[in-house]
Amino acid sequence: MINLLLKLSESDKRVLIALCLVLIILLVLIGYLVKLIKHILSKKADFVDNSMYDLLDAEVILNKKHFRKVSWEKNRRKFYFSARIPVFFILLSMLTIFIYMCVVGFDLSFIGKYNKDLSFALDWENTGELLLGFIPVLARWPQVSKVPLFHFDKVDAWLTYIFDLGMIYGIIHFILCSIVLLIRNIRTIKVSNEYYKKDLNALKEAKLQARGVHIKKPDEELTKVIKEET
């Protein structure tokens, strides 16, 4: 009979427990990071409430469709003014490379070459073992086989570094601006649905109050009398 039970040594058990703890900590960190991001985005989405408050107070918004049209236009304008700076940096980076290429020649290979020199490489051989035959476990730190190389004496290297910095900053900031635009547009839809919701209970109460109907419920004694009679 084949023995299907796994035999774990003490060190294997310790490694498994450590891996589980690391996984749980990682999940908790991701959960708290998500909470933080949600909190920040909800603060950004408050722009919709602030921008539309006076318009709804003055009753100049006609209906849900009008509300969304005006709010989306405000969101687009706010996005445009906040996204100008990263777009400027992206265009500036591209313009510097373009001007250099106009002088030297249209050959973009120097960007790839200097970016490759900036990277570093790690040697992962003989760093770990396989737990239970398939789980890779890190036993030793990897060796650094290649360090980043900076060429501060060359003009095209400087241009490559400026281009990289400008593009990285511009792209990250632009993505953040577009996420904020997305959140505000979603908030517009949510607020318009809530504000213009046709609530039948509220309508019923309003009509009853207008008619002057007695809506006060009978007290306990009267309720008892009613129950006895019925």
Partner: peptide, 10 residues
């Protein structure tokens, strides 16, 4: 709940 949210968003 936080752990669950972490798994979900992962």
């Amino acid at each position: 709940k936080t752990c669950g949210q972490g798994i979900l968003y992962l």
